[in-house]
């Protein structure tokens, strides 16, 4: 039970309130102290906050720096598209992608929980990172190239204009959680043997010899694709801005190349997250759960908790957005 609590606390540590969608701006003038948080000097920061705050502030500074540099690189591309300018702009876009993915959002939490509670190998972690990043940037490309809407208001107020997409995204998260939950229940009842479950065949006297193991990689791929879509289907506003600027200045091909590099940068962050989580699961969680006599039960509880947690996150996000 202690071990389960440890794992759940790890999952929860990834789910601070700022994973929730931003609350819309008030529709009238606002009191300074109501809108911004007044710092109470007596409030003690927790140890985690004390450690993380300077790192967050530093990354925020890098983020602000690169966000400000991107227009300069694009201007140079427009006026003097030399090889050096192109390479510099692509590199800046790559760094932008890395930092952008460290930003607020529920994606990392969902991916982290997913890998922490499901069986996955490193290749799957890498593949999911790629799919998520390209789905996120691909949405922006589709929006710019195929629609004829007032993009000015979209970039100024993305929350309002991406309302429907957000609802789809959050519903997909609930759906993925539900699929994971169903599989955990089937696993618990012995109707499905989960990939990597070393206890299924011998720990409680029943066998799963109905030859369905071959379907697991397909099932994983489907879940994996749904997760990538769920997280990535809201178009990336940063990429949207790059593409709009490129379009307006007749450097669309360069803009598209830049957003590919933004996606690669995002993929790197997501891959690191996925791989570290899988590594952590293999070295810590699996060891914790395989070293006791209730290993099978614990594993099922872990799978079920992860599924319920992802469903709850999806429901909460949807509820806040509706």
């Amino acid at each position: 039970m202690k071990k389960l609590l440890l794992v759940l606390s790890l999952i929860l540590s990834a789910s601070h309130v700022y994973a929730l969608p931003a609350i819309s701006a008030p529709n009238k003038g606002a009191e300074l102290e109501q809108v911004v948080k007044v710092v109470d000097s007596k409030t003690e920061l927790s140890l985690t906050q004390k450690i993380l705050k300077p790192i967050k502030v530093q990354v925020l500074k890098w983020n602000m720096f690169i966000n400000r540099e991107i227009p300069k690189y694009m201007k140079t591309l427009k006026h003097n598209p030399s090889w050096l300018a192109i390479i510099s702009a692509l590199f800046a876009a790559f760094v932008y992608g890395i930092l952008h993915t460290l930003g607020p959002g529920h994606g990392k939490m969902v991916v982290g929980t997913y890998f922490l509670t499901q069986e996955a190998n490193f290749l799957q972690g890498v593949w999911l990172g790629f799919k998520t990043a390209f789905a996120h940037v691909g949405g922006a490309v589709l929006l710019v190239l195929t629609t004829d809407i007032a993009l000015r208001s979209v970039v100024m107020n993305p929350d309002q204009h991406m309302y429907l997409l957000k609802n789809i995204s959050f519903s997909l998260i609930i759906f993925v959680g539900f699929v994971m939950f169903t599989q955990a229940i089937l696993h618990a009842t012995g109707k499905v043997k989960n990939t990597g479950c070393s206890h299924c065949n011998h720990s409680h006297g029943h066998h799963h010899s109905h030859g369905h193991n071959h379907t697991h990689s397909h099932e994983y791929n489907k879940k994996d694709t749904f997760i990538a879509l769920a997280i990535g289907c809201i178009p990336c506003t940063g990429s949207l801005l790059i593409l709009l600027y490129a379009m307006a200045n007749n450097i669309l091909f360069l803009g598209l190349s830049m957003v590919v590099f933004v996606a690669l940068g995002m993929a790197v962050t997501m891959i690191i997250l996925g791989v570290v989580t899988i590594l952590g699961k293999k070295k810590l969680v699996d060891k914790l759960f395989t070293s006791n006599k209730h290993a099978h039960k614990s594993k099922i509880v872990l799978e079920t908790s992860g599924a319920v947690f992802i469903m709850l996150v999806g429901l909460l996000l949807l509820w806040v957005n509706l």
């Binding site: 790890l10 790192i55 925020l60 602000m64 966000n67 400000r68 997250l273 810590l284």
Partner: peptide, 23 residues
């Protein structure tokens, strides 16, 4: 080792902000 892995989890799960988008 466990502590390192736990910290690795935390490090990858914490969120830093990507904003702002408009200046």
């Amino acid at each position: 080792k466990k502590l390192i892995y736990t910290l690795a989890f935390l490090a990858t799960s914490f969120k830093v902000m990507a904003h702002p988008h408009i200046w």
